[in-house]
Design a protein around this nucleic acid. Sequence first.
DNA 1: ACACAAAACTAACGTTTGTTAGTTTGATTT
DNA 2: AAATCAAACTAACAAACGTTAGTTTTGTGT
Lengths: 189, 189
Amino acid sequence: MKTTSRKAEIIAEASQLFKEKGYSAVTVRDIAQAMGIKAASLYNHIEGKQEILSVLILDLAKEFTSGMNAILKMNNSPLQKIEKLIELHIDITVNQSEALAALNNDWMHMAETDVNNFVVMRETYEENFRTIIKEGIAQGQLQPRHPEVILFSILSTLRTLYLWYQKRGKLDVNLLKRDMVAVLIRGIV
Amino acid sequence: MKTTSRKAEIIAEASQLFKEKGYSAVTVRDIAQAMGIKAASLYNHIEGKQEILSVLILDLAKEFTSGMNAILKMNNSPLQKIEKLIELHIDITVNQSEALAALNNDWMHMAETDVNNFVVMRETYEENFRTIIKEGIAQGQLQPRHPEVILFSILSTLRTLYLWYQKRGKLDVNLLKRDMVAVLIRGIV
DNA sequence: ACACAAAACTAACGTTTGTTAGTTTGATTT
DNA sequence: AAATCAAACTAACAAACGTTAGTTTTGTGT
């Protein structure tokens, strides 16, 4: 059964190394060694080191974008939308944690065009999130805090979840979702 | 008035570059250019590229450690201690944001001994924080959520604050503290 | 058995990397 | 005026970098 292409295997292997040391500190020889082949052999499958990074990041960014769009279409309350967004991030984290590391830390090392596309996608995503929060405040469903503080505190928690999930012995995803929603939305007191 | 040594100037300049591109992507020639001198001239002041990183990270780690120790000595309630910790992070972020980027993202690129010291300091810090949270739960002051989820959601927000503070036009520190404490502790609903 | 394509290989390339060695500059002290 | 010293310089190094070119191996369908 050959379900994964060689290119996909390379990208998967590279993403783990990128997560550990960052894109710039990983050499193509490192990636090749992890694959059990020589560095030059990689170029039968990829165009270059940067392509790996771009595939990793842009594919994931698209996943966030389409997840956001799906949530925007639902006619739920702002608070319910935020809950859905938290669950979206957790789902992506659970099976894409390596790509998340690259997206968070190494996006600026993509080719210029890709960086520009990425930044637009990211700003759009944040703007959509911000709008949901503002609606929640306007409707009296959320506390009247500075929307930027709310956006940031939720988003930074979710964005770095990949660092922390998995080192704590894989706690159950549904338990994680429940407690995370509770903590982020209802606080800890 | 010569209040800052040349070495300190180099470290300050380097930390800005590290924040933008990460340690590995910054060359000593980049740092030299930012200083307006040649790369070789740096070595009159520093032992090597790694030394810059270690000074940045370990000095900051010590600051967190002594801040934590001061808070542990106070006889406040767990909740009050957490508020103090949030303020500690905000204070450090406001005037050390470049070093924070290195501490978060590039600690693994220090020399092995320094990495080991750092990891111990970090684990100790987290363990102290976790203990405070557990006490808060035990005393009924905090909601009975998974302590790890609480610890993580607070800490990850505070740790990445440096990314976000300053691009939003330097909102007032006291306002930031107040809203951040409110959001992290009392939630958003 | 043969042809073909996928995927590995060896060898090398031009650059860039961090760093060292030895020298010159410019200001301050004696 | 001579000596001192911090801090810059030029020149070069060996090693590591991403990548290319050309060749050989391996597996698959005919």
